Amino acid sequence: MSTVQALIGARIFDGHGWHDDKALMIDAGKVSAIVPLADVPASAARIDAGGQIIAPGFIDCQVNGGGGVLLNDKPSADHIAQICAAHARFGTTALLPTLITDTRDVTRAAIAAGHAAKAAQVPGFIGLHLEGPHLSVARKGAHEPSYIRPMEDEDLAMIVDCGETFPAMITTIAPENVSEAQVSALSNAGITVSLGHTDCTFETAKTYVTAGASMVTHLFNAMSQLGHRQPGLVGAALSFGELSVGLIADGFHVDPAAMSIALRAKQGPGKMFLVTDAMSTIGSDQQSFFLNGREIFREGGCLRLADGTFAGSDIDMLSSIRFVHDVLGLDLGDAVQLATVNPAAAIGLQTKGALTAGMDADFVVLTPALDLVSTWIAGDTVFQA
Rank of each mutant, 00 (worst) to 15 (best):
C84F: 06
Q337E: 07
S187A: 14
D161R: 10
V31S: 07
G333N: 03
D60T: 08
D371K: 13
G329C: 08
R298I: 12
E295K: 13
T210R: 10
S244A: 15
G333C: 10
A110K: 03
A49Q: 12
F289D: 01
T210Y: 02
V365K: 00
R46A: 07
D39M: 13
V178A: 04
R294D: 01
D277Q: 01
N292G: 13
L291E: 00
L370P: 09
G124T: 08
V137T: 15
A55Q: 01
H129V: 14
L370R: 02
L305R: 08
P343Q: 03
H325L: 02
G132R: 06
L70I: 07
N72E: 04
D20V: 12
I8N: 07
E131C: 09
G124F: 06
Q267G: 00
L219F: 13
T276Y: 04
M158G: 02
F289P: 04
V336G: 00
S280H: 04
R294Q: 13
A354N: 08
H87A: 03
V178Y: 00
V35S: 06
A369W: 01
Q225K: 08
R229M: 14
H115T: 03
V35M: 11
G29F: 06
E299C: 01
L70P: 01
E242R: 11
S284G: 14
G50E: 14
S239H: 15
G312W: 04
D78Y: 02
V4Q: 15
A278Y: 12
K352T: 11
A361C: 10
V183G: 03
T107G: 06
G293K: 07
C302E: 09
L186F: 09
E154M: 05
